[in-house]
Nucleic acid binder design. Structure first.
Lengths: 336, 336
DNA sequence: GCAGTTAGATTAAACGTTTAATCAAAATGG
DNA sequence: CCATTTTGATTAAACGTTTAATCTAACTGC
């Protein structure tokens, strides 16, 4: 049924080794024979089995993106991840790698990596203190970490400048006259992206001579629903805030909806800044002021780093920091 | 390095065949030996190589979802696909299948299927007249088609009741007093979902004694931007419409944004109905009246059908029709 | 006590590649 | 013209499994 190297060899009247050699450009094969073999492969529509190849030389052209601990829905609702994965996919395509989708649950089960002999891993937003992190390192396969701020040498990492992002968003609000600015973070446990962004927030406050008030910092789990519920919380704060910096666009979407239902007008009564610049920001009503990070590019960069690692190429930099940018749209306004 | 069946065999003092037998529950192995082997496998954290397995018995526990011809961005922006893929993933997980992500471009390159010995395919929204469709059938591997309305026996298919969806959305608008209802379809070439939904639209019109006016039917390519641009088009129609039925929520999002910018108020001046019920419908402003199809379930169903096919189980039905439901929210109102 | 069955294992081939080790013939050089 | 090198190929082992074919010893029934 399936056409193998053996069939090609027989038809060309050579040994399988010769076919393998033209396939890989190894060994010595006369141009004449090579041409003939190539023609036959073309005709017969031959595709070498990655399985057999992988078995022999331990590579499968398969990489996997791991997004730890995200509950169902929680993962799907956030375009961030999809843009990321899409970027990864694009970054691997030219080298004929394929991307396997894997959600790793609390069970920390990574057996799929060895089962499928995955060549490399891209891990998003993991806590360096977690058991999963240890397990991943134990696999000893090429890995690129993303959005994890791991403080350990020899680890390949990709980040956007989260501190700067936190700073820019806050500064923008301050420049509009806001002084009481709530922060709605996804999760502040660990030393991840939100922690960095909060550092940026603090920095901007300090620069403007404003005091940091931790009561203004909320957590929403990075979900729409969390953002939605944050609306009420924001108005039960000790002192009235005039702006909110939500550390995900998805959360901002929920928050604005909540505010809307409470009769609070954005941006007239309260300004909102998001984070990520997902597809929908321009289409939201009002369109969302946000911190843009090029997620697609981030995915592509991580893929590049991973493939270089897999191919044993010398890496220019093991720690890539990508830029962020403030996108001012209609959800922020000068304070009255 | 990697621990194989051979290592287990040696440690247990048996042959590899015996280990393989306890692994698969085949052959005859005394309970005593089996226990010992199982313990050693546990201790050594043994994971059998899917590669070697696949090579021997031609299955790889790998399936692939194919979404044909979607341009970059166009794919990522629509949560429909992610929900679908997520559903597929969930539907395969218990059987230890993994999902490979593959975007097939105009080049119709399906070589990854044979390269990785993919066990089965889920194909979304393909045109039965296309070359790609032929190529897929030529692969002769288990396949489930989704949203494709293929008129050919022996093909496994999953749909939501698109005709009913088109009917319900239209009827809802009619019941609110609307008589001039624009349709913004993604693409009406071919006999796909939008065609079916349009049939439903026509049916509802006919039932209400309203004439079908094809000038009211627009195409937006199923994108946000397309929906956005449709806003102007709608107001250049020969006669004023009071409602729009957009055949994707994403498109509706764009349309509402466009209307908003034109100073048209939704739903006061124009009602909008979407289609899909993606995550964001409840969070949109106004929240979107739409036709709900359980996309996640659709993915899961397709996965079930595919796995049954792969496992050679008798299939209850090769043509599954899932229900749809009208979700009335805030984007539709009685005509003035 | 013996033929026949059964339980519990082993052997070896096969899956589709790659690759190191060989080999034969042709080309080269002095 | 012979020894050496080069060219163009082949052979065979290996990768980690599965599985049909065997084999041996123990058990069964009469």
């Amino acid at each position: 049924m399936k056409i193998t190297i053996k069939d090609i060899a027989k038809e060309a009247g050579v040994s399988v080794a010769t076919v393998s050699n033209v396939l890989n450009g190894t060994g010595r094969v006369s141009e004449e024979t090579a041409k003939r073999i190539r023609r036959i492969m073309e005709e017969r529509n031959f595709v070498p089995s990655t399985l057999a190849r992988g078995l022999k030389n331990k590579n499968t052209q398969l990489i996997s993106v791991i997004v730890p601990y995200l509950k169902r829905g929680n993962f799907e609702e956030n375009p961030f991840f999809w843009q990321l994965i899409s970027g990864v996919e694009m970054g691997t395509k030219d080298q004929e790698f394929n991307v396997m989708l894997t959600r790793v649950d609390r069970d920390n089960d990574l057996s799929f990596v060895r089962m499928h002999n995955v060549d490399g891993l891209i891990v998003v937003g993991i806590d360096a203190g977690s058991e999963l992190y240890r397990s991943i390192l134990d696999l000893k396969i090429p890995t690129v970490f993303m959005d994890s701020y791991i403080d350990q040498p020899g680890i390949y990492q990709v980040h956007n400048d989260d501190l700067l992002g936190g700073y820019l968003g806050t500064k923008h609000l301050i420049s509009l006259g806001h002084t009481r600015i709530a922060v709605v973070a996804g999760s502040l446990s660990g030393r991840g992206v939100d922690y960095q962004r909060l550092l940026g927030y603090k920095k901007a406050l300090a620069e403007a001579g404003l005091a940091y008030d931790e009561r203004l910092v909320l957590e929403n789990g990075g979900t729409m629903l969390g953002g939605y519920h944050a609306a009420q919380k924001i108005f039960s704060l000790p002192e009235q805030v005039t702006a909110a910096f939500v550390l995900s666009d998805i959360g901002a979407m929920g928050l604005i909806k909540g505010l809307n239902e409470m009769g609070k007008r954005v941006p007239e009564e309260i300004s909102v800044v998001g984070y990520d610049d997902i597809f929908y920001t321009e289409y939201m009503i009002p369109s969302l002021t946000t911190i843009r990070q090029d997620i697609f590019k981030k995915g592509k960069t991580a893929a590049g780093l991973l493939l270089a690692q897999i191919n044993g190429e010398p890496l220019p930099d093991a720690n890539v920091l990508l830029p962020v940018e403030l996108k001012v749209r209609a959800s922020t306004a000068r304070v009255l």
